[in-house]
C-alpha cells in the first residue's frame, strides 16, 4: 500500500510544517554559514540575533548552542488580549496582516513562509501555526520565557475557546460548502477536517439529485461557472 493514511495531514505532519517557520535566536556559539537545501544560512555570531527555521532553532537549543526568543504574540499580555477577543466575538480573531502582494505572477508566500513568529512580528494576532509553535517552544525552551506557566495557561484557554467555535460553526455548514473560516489555525484545520468535510459531503449527497437537475438546467441555459480560466485546465474528466 503506497500510503496507508487518509486524506489530510496528521498532527506530526502539521508540526513538521510549523518547524519551517522562522524564529529569532540568540546564538551562544559561533557557527559558520551553510548552504542548506532550504536556502543559505548566514553565520551565527554571538550575541547577534538571527532568524532561522524552528527545526534548526530546536536543534541548537537542545545542544545548548542558542536561546530562543519567543515571538511578541506569545506573551501573557498579548495572549490575554486575544483571549478576551475570542470569548467576546463569534468569529476567530483575525490573522496577522499580510505583506503586500508581489507584482505579476510571482510566487505568493504563505505560512510557514510568512514572517509571523520572529522577534519583530506582530503582537496582536495569532499566526496560522500559533498552537503548534507555542507548544513546541514551551516544551523545548521554557526557560526562555518570562512566565512559561502563564503562557501555557492562556494557550490552553485559547484552544478551548476556539474549539467551541469550530463546533458551533458546524451548524452553518451546508451542501454547497462555502463556509468561511478566516483566522483558523493549522492544527485546528487538521483536527476538524474529517468532521467538517464529512458534514459537508454528507449534506451534498442528500441534496444530490436536486443539484444534478439544477446543473442540467443551468448548462442548457448556457451558464457555465468554470469559464473564467483556460478550458484546457478544466478538461479533466
Amino acid at each position: 500500500m503506497a500510503l496507508p493514511l487518509p486524506p489530510g495531514l496528521t498532527p506530526p505532519e502539521i508540526a513538521f510544517i510549523c518547524e519551517m517557520e522562522l524564529v529569532t535566536i540568540i546564538p551562544r556559539q559561533r557557527l559558520e554559514g551553510l548552504e542548506l537545501l532550504g536556502g543559505p544560512l548566514k553565520p551565527l555570531n554571538p550575541p547577534q540575533r538571527a532568524s532561522i527555521p524552528l527545526w534548526l532553532a530546536l536543534l541548537l537549543k537542545r545542544q545548548r548552542r542558542a536561546n530562543i526568543v519567543p515571538p511578541p504574540w506569545l506573551s501573557p499580555d498579548s495572549l490575554s488580549a486575544i483571549l478576551k477577543y475570542e470569548t467576546e466575538i463569534d468569529a476567530f480573531s483575525p490573522p496577522p496582516r499580510l505583506p503586500p502582494l508581489p507584482s505579476g505572477t510571482s510566487l505568493v508566500f504563505s505560512p510557514p513562509f510568512l514572517p509571523g513568529s520572529t522577534a519583530d512580528a506582530t503582537a496582536d494576532a495569532l499566526p496560522y501555526h500559533w498552537l503548534e509553535l507555542g507548544s513546541m517552544l514551551l516544551e523545548a525552551a521554557p526557560e526562555d520565557f518570562d512566565d512559561a506557566n502563564e503562557v501555557r495557561k492562556l494557550l490552553r484557554g485559547l484552544r478551548e475557546a476556539r474549539m467551541a467555535k469550530l463546533r458551533q460553526g458546524v451548524e452553518v455548514l451546508d451542501a454547497g460548502g462555502g463556509v468561511k473560516m478566516n483566522g483558523v489555525g493549522g492544527m485546528e484545520v487538521g483536527e476538524a477536517r474529517t468532521f467538517i468535510t464529512g458534514v459537508v459531503d454528507g449534506l451534498r449527497k442528500i441534496g444530490k439529485s436536486r443539484e444534478e437537475a439544477r446543473k442540467e438546467r443551468d448548462r442548457e441555459n448556457g451558464y457555465s461557472p468554470s469559464q473564467d480560466f483556460d478550458d484546457d485546465e478544466m478538461d479533466m474528466r
Binding site: 499580510l98 454547497g176 460548502g177 468561511k180 483566522g183 467538517i196 439544477r214 461557472p225 468554470s226
Partner: peptide
C-alpha cells in the same frame, strides 16, 4: 465564485480560508 448546482456565490479575497468543494 459560483458553486455549480446551488445558489451559492462566494466572494473570495486574499487571506480568506474557505471550505468548498
Amino acid at each position: 465564485v459560483a458553486v455549480e448546482g446551488t445558489d451559492k456565490r462566494l466572494e473570495m479575497k486574499r487571506g480568506d480560508v474557505w471550505v468548498v468543494r
